[in-house]
């Protein structure tokens, strides 16, 4: 009986295959990913059985923080022949700010540079009188400002009185979208989405809804997270 010979084996593993797989996975993630949007506050939306997805274009998103502050986020059309996000934002800004300056002539003028900066910002929401100051702030301070001193003034002081600032923004959005032939997208019910924390009192949401109603935007959507309802 001869001794059993143990074959000498090399401990080096060929990593080429592994590398192939990881590169594939990486490509998959890069192509499918949409990055988490940075928002001044993180909210948990209420669960719902509704399965409709949030539209990813031609959308006005209203974010309601648990402390009642209101922010907005505008997205233009994906189709490059239509209204792009940048133009959408700049035009809304100039219209809203101009109508603010009509009643407040002493407010500083908006520079083209500031408008360009604004078009790159995802979420906005500061009182009009702070707007130019906010845009001029450096990047890292803007979020802080938005969180602490931000919030679009929204209270309805007098019914059928002059527009508050939130309504001014809405009116500007409406007229810009109509100019570009997207009026139907806004009014049709899928153009405005309200995002609010699930444990918030209804009064916070109600104020926003009342403002939307005043501006004749009666159809809108509430952002929810998916809940699977078991069959009875």
């Amino acid at each position: 009986m001869g001794k059993v010979k143990i074959k000498k084996q090399s401990t080096i593993i060929d990593m080429t295959a592994m590398s192939d797989v990881t590169v594939l996975l990486l490509t998959f993630f890069m192509l499918t990913s949409t990055f988490l949007q940075k928002e001044p506050v993180q909210v948990i939306t209420p669960p719902s059985v509704s399965e409709e997805k949030v539209p990813d274009e031609k959308l006005v998103q209203v974010l309601i923080a648990p402390n009642g502050k209101v922010y907005m986020n505008l997205t233009g059309a994906k189709d490059s022949t239509q209204l792009s996000t940048e133009t959408f934002r700049t035009e809304v800004l100039s219209q809203a700010y101009n109508s603010y300056r009509e009643t407040h002539p002493s407010a500083p003028k908006l520079t083209a540079q500031a408008a360009k900066e604004f078009s790159k910002l995802n979420t906005f929401g500061v009182p009009m009188k702070e707007l130019t100051k906010w845009i001029a702030l450096p990047m890292e301070k803007r979020d802080e400002f938005l969180k602490n001193e931000g919030g679009i003034p929204i209270q309805i002081s007098v019914k059928d009185g002059p527009r508050n600032e939130f309504q001014t923004w809405l009116a500007a959005i409406k007229s810009v979208m109509q100019e570009h032939g997207l009026g139907k997208d806004l009014i049709g019910g899928r153009g405005v989405a309200i995002k609010a924390e699930q444990s918030s009192p209804y009064s916070l949401v109600q104020v926003v809804m009342d403002n939307l109603q005043t501006e004749k935007l009666n159809k809108f959507t509430l952002m929810t997270s998916l809940k699977v309802e078991e069959e009875e």
Binding site: L26, F29, M30, T32, S33, T34, F35, L36, T45, S48, S50, E51, E52, K53, V54, D56, G189, R190, A193, K195, M209, L212, Q213, K216, N218, K219, F220, T221, L222, M223, T224, S225, L226
Partner: peptide, 19 residues
């Protein structure tokens, strides 16, 4: 990439209010 992406898009609930 796995940590930074949102795979789940949030849902919406349509609502119509009277004028």
């Amino acid at each position: 990439f796995m940590l930074c992406t949102t795979m789940l898009k949030s849902q919406t609930l349509d609502l119509v209010l009277p004028t």
